[in-house]
Computed example of a mutant assay.
Amino acid sequence: MNLAGQQFDERSLLERALRNMRPAKDQPVRVRWALVRDAFGLGSMAAYAMCKEFQLDPEEKVKP
């Protein structure tokens, strides 16, 4: 995929999205798998597996 003159593959874009997810400022601290679930419309098990696929801790508490 070519974006603004730079070449990206979809997998690297997914990883960037997962690593940079944060809850909204008015939300409490949340675990990463829940952010992934809500952002991608996945079930909890698929969201957990997606975190693991990119070597992210699904249970990491992510602050706004």
Rank of each mutant, 00 (worst) to 15 (best):
M1T: 09
N2E: 15
N2A: 12
L3Y: 09
L3S: 06
A4D: 14
Q6S: 10
Q6L: 11
Q7F: 05
Q7C: 04
Q7S: 12
Q7A: 11
F8L: 07
F8K: 10
F8W: 13
D9S: 10
D9I: 07
D9V: 08
E10D: 05
E10V: 07
R11G: 01
R11W: 03
R11V: 03
R11H: 05
S12T: 03
S12W: 08
L13F: 01
L13A: 05
E15P: 05
E15I: 01
E15D: 04
E15H: 07
R16Y: 06
A17D: 04
A17V: 11
L18A: 04
L18C: 11
L18Q: 01
R19A: 08
R19P: 04
N20A: 09
N20K: 12
M21H: 01
M21Q: 06
M21S: 03
M21V: 13
R22I: 14
R22W: 05
R22M: 08
P23W: 04
A24M: 13
A24R: 12
K25G: 06
D26L: 13
Q27A: 12
R30I: 15
W33R: 10
W33T: 08
W33H: 06
W33V: 12
A34C: 07
L35N: 01
V36K: 01
V36C: 05
V36F: 02
V36L: 06
R37K: 11
D38M: 10
F40A: 09
F40W: 07
G41N: 08
G41D: 06
L42F: 04
L42I: 13
L42W: 03
G43H: 04
G43S: 09
G43Y: 05
G43N: 09
S44I: 15
M45T: 15
M45I: 15
M45L: 14
A47D: 00
A47I: 15
A47F: 10
Y48S: 03
A49F: 05
A49P: 00
A49Y: 03
A49I: 09
A49H: 06
M50V: 12
C51N: 01
C51D: 01
E53Y: 10
F54Q: 03
P58Y: 02
P58F: 06
P58S: 05
P58T: 06
P58R: 08
E59L: 15
E60G: 08
E60T: 12
E60D: 01
E60V: 15
V62Q: 01
V62T: 12
K63N: 01
P64L: 11
